[in-house]
Design a protein around this nucleic acid. Structure first.
Length: 464
RNA sequence: GGUCCCUUCGUCUAUCGGUUAGGACACAUGGUUUUCAUCCAUGAAAGAGGGGUUCGAUUCCCCUAGGGACCGCCA
């Protein structure tokens, strides 16, 4: 039995979005589940629109989310000569032909079809005409001789049997007038060359499959299995497209989503295994199968992404969490100063309990990263005379403290509450504002202990 | 317009002819928490419509409606 091989084959004509990443993920998981190979192939035959920056973005995206591929990325344009050879062979075998229709002529036909409200399909004008009298001024394209009679059935691993009339598939172009191969040719040839056993892709490619299978058959190649997965839709219910600013991985990284969380979310979007929601990497590989893929398109739900992210943050080892936070802050916010690192790492146990994203953790830990506290006017008003009096009393008390811990601090605060006829808010809020510059944040004792006696005393003394 | 595909709570989904139609997110309410959150409990919330087949349909078949994809010398 042949070893399973899958591939992800994006074109570098735009940034890779989250839907493409899911396709890559499914291919990768399927091959890993079968102990097979997974490849990345950059389909850059459209030289006009292919950009290196997009290629880089694709590679970085896969790397970020942890999808690794065999060898290095394959570049489709490297094999163009081979694709052309196949076209020539098809031509020689009489399974393809030169078409001398001018683009004006084709346009005209399309226009007429539209007027008559009939579907346009190339009229196969040059199919049997032979080349007795080719127009000299026209560079021909090469078209594949599609089947004109009967039906074809695609045994799709996700969608089941799909049957169509062969005459709805036109004689598609395999070599352009400039001699370059088109997608359907290049993709088929490369998939064969690379030994693909399973093609898992978006169902926008379903119709192409009927064309590609004909190429395989014409060349006497073994036809791989196909699985067409439903596309991801936007909230509006339309296909995610690189043209309308569909979200890239960077958009999620930016708001503090962790790769594993997004991987987990993407896995469960349109795929399920019983009632299980959380899949670590090993479980994803172990349980992934094609049967679990749903047939209907699914919509992106940011709330679910947050919720899974929260789960990962709360359950992650703190050393690892810190690494993510450190990178996140350095990339998107501000660098965590070297001398603050231990302090923040040791505070993660309470910081992470209030966070859905790395951004939340950053916001909660600002008071530890920065020694300078900004207090806005509104909060400043809360620091009235009584508040300052209480803070001064508190500062005096802690200065006598040798051991700065919750156990020592609690009685001090409780006594202050009792003796000054105030509630906890009366002391907690001013302390919080003075120490963090915010009315919200971690628990008072967490703030105090993480800052330490000297820093607390320093910050409190600056008020008054 | 043609071809093909899809249709269970707002969202992601479970169910492979017999269930009080389950879970998760979001939402609402209550409790814990001396802020904001967390956490816990509870609640509201679904088989598009119509025909069949069957003792019995969410599940199988047909029709209708709605949604989507494709219809390039783009991929």
């Amino acid at each position: 039995m042949k070893i399973v091989a899958t591939r992800f084959a994006p074109s570098p004509t735009g940034p890779l979005h989250i839907g493409g990443v899911r396709t890559a993920l499914f291919n990768w998981l399927y091959s890993k589940n079968k102990g097979g190979k997974f490849y990345l192939r950059i389909e850059d035959t459209d030289k006009e629109r292919s950009k290196d920056e997009f290629k880089t973005q694709i590679i970085n995206s896969l790397k970020w989310i942890g999808i690794n591929y065999e060898d290095r990325e394959y570049i489709q344009s490297d094999k163009i000569d081979y694709h052309i050879n196949v076209a020539d062979e098809l031509l020689k075998k009489g399974l393809a032909y030169r078409c001398y229709c001018s683009s004006d002529e084709i346009e005209e036909q399309k226009k007429r079809a539209k007027q008559k409200k009939v579907p346009y399909i190339y009229n196969r004008k040059w199919r049997d005409k032979g080349e007795t009298d080719p127009p000299k001024e026209i560079d021909p394209v090469i078209r594949f001789k599609s089947k004109v009679e009967g039906k074809s059935i695609l045994k799709d691993l996700v969608q089941g049997n799909i049957e169509i009339e062969n005459n709805t598939i036109e004689d598609f172009v395999i070599l352009r007038a400039d001699g370059s191969p088109t997608y359907n040719l290049s993709a088929s040839v490369d998939d064969h060359l690379m030994g693909m056993t399973h093609i898992i892709r978006g169902d926008d490619h379903k119709i192409n499959t009927f064309k590609q299978i004909q190429i395989y058959e014409a060349m006497n190649w073994e036809v791989p299995s196909f699985a067409h997965i439903p596309l991801i839709h936007t909230i509006e219910g339309k296909k995610l497209s690189k043209r309308d600013n569909a979200s890239t991985l960077d958009d999620y990284s930016k708001i503090g989503i962790i790769p594993n969380a997004l991987r987990n979310y993407l896995l469960r979007l349109g795929w399920s295994y019983k009632d299980k929601e959380i899949f670590d990497l090993d479980e994803s590989i172990k349980y992934f199968n094609l049967e679990g893929i749903g047939k209907s398109p699914s919509k992106l739900d940011i709330n679910r992404i947050y919720s899974i992210n929260e789960h990962y943050i709360k359950n992650m080892d703190e050393n690892e969490l810190f690494k993510f936070l450190n990178t996140y802050c350095g990339t998107y916010k501000e660098k965590i100063p070297y001398q603050k690192k231990d302090k923040i790492k040791n505070s993660l146990h309470f910081l992470k309990n209030k966070a859905k994203t790395l951004e939340d953790i950053y916001n909660n830990s600002k008071f530890l990263i920065n020694d300078k506290i900004q207090i806005n006017d509104e909060d400043q008003k809360l620091l009235d005379e009584t508040a300052i009096k209480i803070i001064n009393l508190f500062t005096k008390e802690i200065n006598n403290l040798s051991n700065f811990s919750r156990e020592k601090l609690e009685p001090i605060i409780n006594d202050l509450i009792k003796n000054n006829n105030i509630n906890f808010k009366g002391i907690g809020q001013p302390i919080r504002i003075c120490l963090t510059g915010s009315k919200f944040g971690p628990g008072i004792y967490d703030i105090l202990c993480s800052l330490g006696k000297d820093e607390v005393s320093k910050r409190l003394s600056q008020i008054r």
